[in-house]
Amino acid sequence: MESNPRKATFWQIAKAVSWAFFGVRKKSDLDMDASMLTPKQVIIGGVVGALIFVMSLILLVKLVTN
């Protein structure tokens, strides 16, 4: 996504990844993903998504414990 400056694509990766974490994806969206995203983008997106997920959990934990 860094390599690709177009905003639409960035959001598309973000959307694909966040739906993936939930585990639900519409068929039409999937076809769009499949035609537009490269595996590299998906993997980087997935790892970044995992990091964001971990960070937000840590934040939540901090919030709860304080």
Binding site: G23, V24, G49
Partner: peptide, 19 residues
Amino acid sequence: FGYSSMVYATASIAILSCI
């Protein structure tokens, strides 16, 4: 039902399983 969801969910489970 939801083939693509299944693929995404499997990938998601795999990533989450590491944390």
